[in-house]
Design a protein around this nucleic acid. Structure first.
Lengths: 223, 223
DNA sequence: GAAGTGATTTTGATTAGTCAAAAATAGTAT
DNA sequence: ATACTATTTTTGACTAATCAAAATCACTTC
């Protein structure tokens, strides 16, 4: 059984690979940064993950998940996201506060209990942040989404995913009713001010910076 | 924050103290046995628990929880038992299989989530095995119960608690409908055969050995 | 009171995960 | 080519938790 430390590294490497689809490998600097450890620790962990055949590790190059490593990473991610759903749906926790809880529970829960939860929830395909939930066989349905920054003015959209688990950002999103599922319309791009303005329902329009807008992924709605 | 290893030792010491109310201290042999470690490990852990003021440790004597240690032990026990309730009530797991799951989750769950669960369950006072759930302030309501071995023939009882979390034993209890809450009547004691016979509802009478019967605690019912 | 027995403690070693700081390397800029 | 810089690796050290096996202790039993 891999330790929860190993599980966390693999999950993190997976997420870094996703975040940087261009890069072939994850650097020690990024890995260390993402894990909150020193670079030396990342190096020695990379070696030990390579010994267990979870990653391919190239000295002075970086690290890349093997099929075996990806399978495990996706298993953890599935746990994490199903737990988030469950905490929101079944116990009414706020979606902005479930991340840390899931971060711990994902290493403690059994497969059996997870299956029960999945069933209880009716086999959801995304979590409360809109992140896709890997299936138990390790598939992730990747829907093509557009960042808010790239939607043209006047276009109607449905908010589909929020790419940041930070509690403050999520509360901002909440405050302006920009949760996944909500319909909205892009009113304006102000390139000078580096800002995007968006309106949902009868709420007053919201203007946000482009770095924030880039973290909000949407589907375009025809008509 | 104490590690989950420390939490487990404290919980175990508490349970050993309860199991042997006569003994003033828990011996290294018992502690090592209960924790599944070698005696040397128990000794060094005893010292380190004493350094953290969770226990009083007397070399060649044994170990005894301090108020501080008991508080923490009860907090873990509360978690454990509320989680067991939750898994049975909310997710329909069988009471014979929730112990191991709770054993892991009890170290990962936050106080906030635990409070939600407590509320969801309607603030139960006992878990599915009839074990009392400590309050968040650390009180345990100790109801006086009688082991089945000490109930006189012909007396009606209500099964209140099952003092063994072993899956096989619990399934035996289940099979004969002897779960907490069930009414039953003691039909006979056979001291030669070391056996007790009991009947519940319309079920055929069950005969069990006295060691098994001693683990089933009951309330006497008048009339 | 000497010997023996069982429990306990000590000792030395191991593994996982970590850090700090020194050393090495790759890539860039002159 | 040389030198600089940022990254990466190495080294040595530390903590928590564990084991195996040797040493010690407390308590009988003769």
């Amino acid at each position: 059984m891999p330790s929860s430390t190993v599980e966390n590294y693999l999950k993190r490497i997976y997420l870094e690979e996703q975040a940087e689809p261009g890069a072939a490998v994850v650097s020690m600097k990024n890995l260390a940064g993402a894990m909150g450890v020193t670079p030396g620790t990342a190096t020695s962990m990379a070696k030990s993950l390579a010994d267990s055949r979870f990653v391919a590790y190239e000295p002075y190059g970086g690290v890349k998940l093997t099929a075996r490593g990806r399978t495990l990473a996706l298993r953890i991610l599935r746990r994490h996201r199903l737990i988030e759903c469950f905490l929101v749906e079944a116990l009414g926790l706020d979606w902005s506060e479930v991340h840390d809880e899931a971060e711990r529970l994902e290493h403690a829960i059994s497969d059996k209990l997870l299956d029960r939860i999945d069933e209880f929830l009716g086999f959801p395909s995304v979590d409360p942040h809109g992140d896709p939930i890997p299936t138990s066989s390790g598939d992730v349905r990747q829907v093509a989404l557009t960042p808010l920054t790239e939607v043209e003015e006047g276009v109607a959209v449905r908010i589909a995913r929020v790419l940041d688990q930070d509690e403050k950002f999520l509360r901002f999103v909440d405050r302006h009713h920009l949760r996944p599922g909500t319909r909205a319309r892009v009113l304006a791009h102000d390139h000078a001010a580096d800002a995007v303005t968006i309106q949902t329902g009868k709420m007053p329009a919201v203007t946000m910076g482009r770095t924030a807008a880039a973290k909000i992924m949407v589907e375009l709605i025809k008509g």
